[in-house]
Design a binder for these strands. Structure first.
Length: 592
RNA sequence: GGUCCGGUAGCUCAGCUGAAUAGAGCAACAGCCUUCUAAGCUGUGGGUCACAGGUUUGAAUCCUGUCCGGAUCACCA
């Protein structure tokens, strides 16, 4: 149990014994002591001075005396400054903590709690390649899933592929019209990029046709409706829904190209899924909800035959759930999919990694499921994340400002290679090891950059400035790990060594206090569904270790005891860095 | 216009279930490699926490209002 969770009941008990005063553990404020004061943890006394009718100094002294005398193994000393009781935890406590945990690669990881959670993330369209926004989604989803796993949840990662609809038909039509039978193979192009090019081509051609029609005197709406390529696309969608064989064949062929491209990208960035859903399979399944909703009088029909739900009492609007022609809309599909996923996984919680532009949609989805009295409605959780914007604003594919995922990864790996070569520390690496190292560092920089920010905040990415490799970055943490490993290759701590209580220097103490907080950080990250908590924490750990490293020698420590202590500290720091970075989907190198 | 989210150092961000003099990184400047990897370390400068009220022993943090930025309110997905 964490030291803070041990202190709390002791304080509650002490206040009861000293003053017959009752307080809940939750109402106690215990912070780490500010560096300018002596102590490890601080109890804030202000909240109960009024009830006790004593001065904070008196309470601090009496509580401090009580704790240090009754629990001398934990509390070594105390001091009171204004309303703050600063507690010094005993060296023996910290040293004992370190000895029992420094080898534990699973430190902080919780045993199974039997609760099933699913995380839906990535969810690409099969008409264009992945871009920077998708990367944030992928990294978030993967990381949140792993964080929940480490907290004992049984987690399944799912992906919904938007593989049908008018936007898919656009690239198909453009390919039919303009490709002359070219393929990814014949043009040596990655499949998703190949198809994406035709999606762009469609847009260009469409604009051209609209302009031509405008020139002929048609109105804007009419021109947009009458453009031949758009009409052909709409016909194709109808043909697809009717199952016309040659359309289905083309659809399958082009989607397959995209999947082959996605597979390469997913492999590179480390995304994986336990189950993939295809919209083409699931888009019909929501329709049965419409009947159910009508029977339960949750939905209603309008005169034109369309079906709606009235959410005005909940502060929202009326929402269409089925078109008058009987085809389903987006929300209908998602209702069906939620049900499908529940059948598959019996989840307690279903997390959707979806951008904040869909906040309204996700709110409606959950609300409708509630009104339909679905048992899983409360478990729907929208992990809403902000857009990745350019300094000039949103990325726009029409204006060619979209930052392509594959390109960006290549660029980051290239920069990692350049830095590594310049530093010249990798003698003896094989070609394969070098490539692996470049991937590790380049992807590490990219993932850390996107995960260190609170998900709900938007991120500004400036393509003119490459992502940093110094300071609050992935490579900084990776580098700290590599330096520790360099020491541990020379000598490891002896697990059986009996450390005498040699005292702890400030740098040692600060580090050990931080390491002890890791399990609490894991809990917080899981509870908040927030990987940035871990990124911030592990940066602090690395930074603190680096300060310690610069001040004190491990190999040439002042005494055998100090050497063992520092080897243990180093080993535990390396383990926690590896563990935390894994939760962010980032590998850590042995050397760099 | 309604709803939701954000506004903290020149820039990018922590801190937001209230607590000590508001913290990091980048950028700038000054130092530190004959000692475990300098992708590192140390120091200096840099803040009306958007603004105005309120609650409180105590507010960047909670409440109200205003201003600014973004998202959304489709028989698109």
């Amino acid at each position: 149990m964490s030291i803070v969770m041990q202190i709390k009941p002791l304080v509650v008990k002490a206040l009861k014994e000293l003053y017959n005063f009752d307080i809940e553990e939750a109402d106690l404020t215990i912070n780490t002591t500010k560096p300018e004061f002596e102590g490890d943890y601080t109890i804030v006394l202000f909240s109960f001075i009024k009830s006790l009718k004593r001065s904070p100094e008196q309470i601090g002294k009496e509580l401090g005396d009580h704790l240090t005398s009754q629990h001398a193994t934990i509390f070594h000393a105390y001091n009171v400054i204004k309303g703050f009781l600063n507690l010094v935890i005993s060296n023996d406590y910290w040293i004992n903590f370190l000895r029992t945990n420094f080898l534990a690669t699973q430190f902080g990881v919780k045993p199974s709690n039997g609760i099933t959670v699913i995380v839906e993330y990535s969810s690409p369209n099969t008409n264009k390649p992945l871009h920077l926004g998708h990367l944030r989604n992928n990294f978030l989803g993967w990381s949140v899933a792993e964080i929940l796993k480490s907290n004992g949840y049984e987690v399944f990662k799912t992906c919904v592929v938007n593989d049908r609809g008018i936007h898919i038909c656009k690239s198909m039509i453009a390919w039919q019209f303009f490709a002359n039978g070219q393929t990814p193979e014949s043009t040596n192009t990655k499949g998703d990029h190949f198809v994406g090019n035709y999606y762009v081509k469609f847009d260009q051609e469409y604009k051209q046709q609209v302009n031509d029609l405008l020139a002929k005197g048609l109105g804007k709406e009419e021109a947009e409706r009458e453009a031949p390529i758009m009409k052909a696309t709409q016909q194709m969608l109808l043909d697809w829904e009717a199952g016309k064989p040659e359309v289905i064949a083309l659809w399958k062929k082009m989607n397959q190209w995209v999947y082959e491209g996605f597979d390469v990208t997913y492999q590179t960035i480390g995304s994986d899924f336990d189950k993939t859903y295809y919209e083409s399979d699931t888009y019909i399944k929501g329709k049965k909800f419409v009947e159910e909703g009508l029977n339960k009088k949750v939905f209603f029909k309008k005169e034109d035959g369309s079906t709606w739900i009235d959410l005005t009492e909940d502060g929202l609007d009326e929402k269409l759930v089925l078109r008058k022609d009987g085809t389903s809309v987006y929300i209908t599909q998602d209702l069906g999919l939620a049900d499908e996923k529940y059948k598959d996984f019996q989840y307690k919680e279903s997390i959707y990694i979806v951008g904040d532009e869909q906040n309204y949609h996700m709110k409606v989805l959950k609300l409708i499921l509630k009104k339909l009295e679905k048992p899983y409605a409360d478990g729907i959780y929208h992990l809403s994340y902000g857009m990745v914007d350019l300094p000039t604003g949103r990325m726009k594919s029409r204006e060619g400002t979209v930052v392509d995922a594959d390109d960006l990864v290549d660029e980051m790996v290239g920069i990692a290679a350049k830095h590594t070569e310049e530093l010249g520390k990798v003698a003896g690496f094989t070609e394969a090891e070098l490539q692996d190292l470049y991937d590790t560092i380049g992807l590490g920089a990219l993932k850390f950059f996107l995960l260190r920010v609170d998900p709900k905040k938007r991120i500004v990415f400036n393509p003119e400035e490459s992502i940093d490799f110094h300071g609050f970055t992935g490579p900084f943490v990776q580098y700290s790990h590599a330096r520790i490993k360099s020491i541990l290759r020379k000598e490891k701590a002896e697990p059986t060594y009996k450390l005498q209580s040699t005292g702890l220097l400030a740098a040692e103490r600060e580090l050990i206090i931080l390491l002890e907080q890791y399990p609490t950080i894991l809990e917080q990250a899981a509870q908040e569904h927030n990987p940035s908590v871990i990124a911030i924490y592990i940066f602090t750990v690395a930074k603190t270790y680096n300060t310690f490293y610069a001040e004190h020698s491990v190999m040439n420590a002042e005494s055998a005891d100090k050497k063992q202590l520092r080897l243990q500290l180093s080993e535990m720091t390396a383990n926690i860095i590896a563990s935390a970075m894994h939760l962010l989907g980032i590998k850590v190198p042995e050397r760099m």
